[in-house]
Amino acid sequence: MWWKIIIFFLMSGVIVGAFVFPSPMNPQISLGPADVYRIFFFHVPQAWMASLAFIMAMVYSIMYLRKKEDIYDVRAVTANKLGLIFAILATVTGSIFAKLTWGEFWNWSEIREVSIFILLVMYGAYFALRSAVVDQEKKASLAAVVSILFAVAAIFLIFVLPRMYAEFSQHPSDTIINKEGKMTMGPNVRLVFFSSLAAFTMLFLWINSISVKIERLARRKLVGE
């Protein structure tokens, strides 16, 4: 129970810090109102959580293919579900930021927005595939292979592609680490940002453990029937 109390106070502290400390905006290179940049404390950890979830799903999928134990399929599908939810949250917060700084909710020439759109379609297809196959073992094996391929594609879409085509990105650059590999954040921004990363990671692990239990109970019930 103690770690749940830590999550509560850590996330509450992040919310207070995000609104009380000065905005993380760099006025020399940034557009729009300074307060909009406070979304950084929530948008970036959400995108990180989505990446973590997809990588976790890939690891569980590999373990499923090796051991053929149902628990790994349960863990993989749960991680992918949470990854999709966090990716949607990151897209929504990103769109709000885009509207208030660049003037429109969506821009098809912005490489990160196109990447996240492809990612959402891919993981939508993953769940469509799962619901299309009836046989549980076949479903789990197929989904595991797709999950591994999609996680590799997700890493490429999130971390590689936007850096390869940086000229198509309007995203604020050098927000965390600059080209020389040095931290660009001030002490207050750093404190709130890394606390937010920790709070979101702990929250993700908690929700993940509840979701795994629910999925296992649902499968036991289905088998029982």
Partner: peptide, 25 residues
């Protein structure tokens, strides 16, 4: 300040979400 209003609303939503997760758990 509008920032404080948003902060209080966010804290209320967070407290609600936390309570829901505890009861679900």
């Amino acid at each position: 300040d509008a920032n404080y209003v948003v902060m209080v609303v966010t804290l209320i939503i967070w407290a609600g979400l936390f309570g829901y997760l505890i009861s679900l758990d």
